[in-house]
Structure formats: C-alpha cells, structure tokens
C-alpha cells in the first residue's frame, strides 16, 4: 500500500527548509502556548483532565501550565468569575507579557452562565479581551482542546516580525511598541 508523504522529507530536501521568517516564528509560537490556568470553578477540573494522560494537552505543546503570569502566553479562564475575583483576573492578565491571549472556558467565563446574580461578572470579556469562547457547562476536555486548536489557528495567522520592537526601531520609529521592553544596543 502506498503511503502519502506529508511534510518535510530529509531524503529529498536535504538539510535545508525554505520558509518565511514570519511563518517559522508563528509556527514556533503556536506550538508552545504556555497556559496560565485561571481555574475558578468546576471547569478547572476539566482543565486538569485535559492536562492528564487520557486527553494529553501536551500533544499541542500546552502542557507547561505556568502559575506565574510572567511566563505564560494564554490565560484559560476556567470557571465563574465573581466581581470580587474580577480585579484579580484583570491584574494577572495585565502582568502577563505580550503577546498574550485569553480563552474563556465554559458558560460562566463566557457570559456569566446560569449565575444571573449580584455577585457574578457577566462574562470575562467585560474586563479583558477574549480570543476564544468555549461552550459547555463544563466543556468536555475535547471541547477545550478544540478551542485551543482554534486559538492556534488564530496565532498562526498573526504576524510576528511586524509586532517586534526591533522592527519598529529599524524602521526609524523611535516609539517602541506598547508593553515591549526597550531594546538595548
């Protein structure tokens, strides 16, 4: 039976791969999204299941759950965001380094869910920008993984080089990009 060859074949192409720098960087980026697990309710249990061996989020390069916002790329808001917690969620989001993305996991994080109540924020998008919403109460791990794959697609489409501080400096723009550390010569 003939098998179809996909991707890079070292026998034909040798040790050389031709691609655009932007595409390569985006490829690195989308396959090493480190999540900030913002586990607030039962959705966090499904998030943990996604990290364990049966669903294995490591297949997508996302197994490195970072509990420090400085080291994470994507915040997975898993659970009910109360108004009391909203300030904390916002602060942790602001502490994350650019580029950063947010996934609203489940009904509560997306819209407040069934909690039409005085104490619950009606969707985390009221305080931070959300890239992917995942339906479910709670979503199954497959749904989370699908949402993360949607995020990967989104990340792969975003230009990398144009957003770098060094790019804007080379173009003679003295003002560095927002939230970027000043480059030292």
């Amino acid at each position: 039976m003939q098998t179809l060859e996909l991707g890079y074949n070292s026998k034909i192409e040798g040790d050389v791969v031709f691609t655009r720098l932007d595409a390569a960087l985006a490829w690195f980026r989308q396959n090493s999204l480190w999540p900030m697990p913002m586990g607030l309710a039962c959705c966090a249990i499904e998030l943990m299941a996604s990290g364990a061996s049966r669903f294995d989020i490591a297949r997508f390069g996302m197994e490195v759950m970072r509990f420090s916002p400085r080291q994470s790329d994507v915040m997975i808001v898993a659970g009910t965001v109360t108004y009391k917690m909203a300030t904390v969620v916002r602060r942790i989001y602001e502490q994350m380094a650019e580029p950063k993305w947010v996934v609203a996991m489940g009904a509560c994080a997306s819209t407040g869910g069934m909690y039409r109540s005085y104490s619950v924020l009606q969707g985390v998008d009221r305080i931070i920008p959300v890239d992917v919403y995942i339906a479910g109460c709670p979503p199954r791990p497959e749904a989370l993984l699908d949402g993360m794959m949607q995020l990967q697609k989104k990340v792969s489409r975003q230009p990398v080089v144009a957003g770098l501080t060094i790019t804007s400096m080379l173009k003679g723009n003295s003002k560095p990009a927002l939230n970027a550390a000043p480059a030292t010569a």
Partner: peptide, 8 residues
C-alpha cells in the same frame, strides 16, 4: 477594588 453591574 471591585465594581458590580446588574445582571440581565
């Protein structure tokens, strides 16, 4: 500290 809005 915090804010609240009335929920729909």
């Amino acid at each position: 500290v915090a804010f609240t809005r009335s929920a729909p």
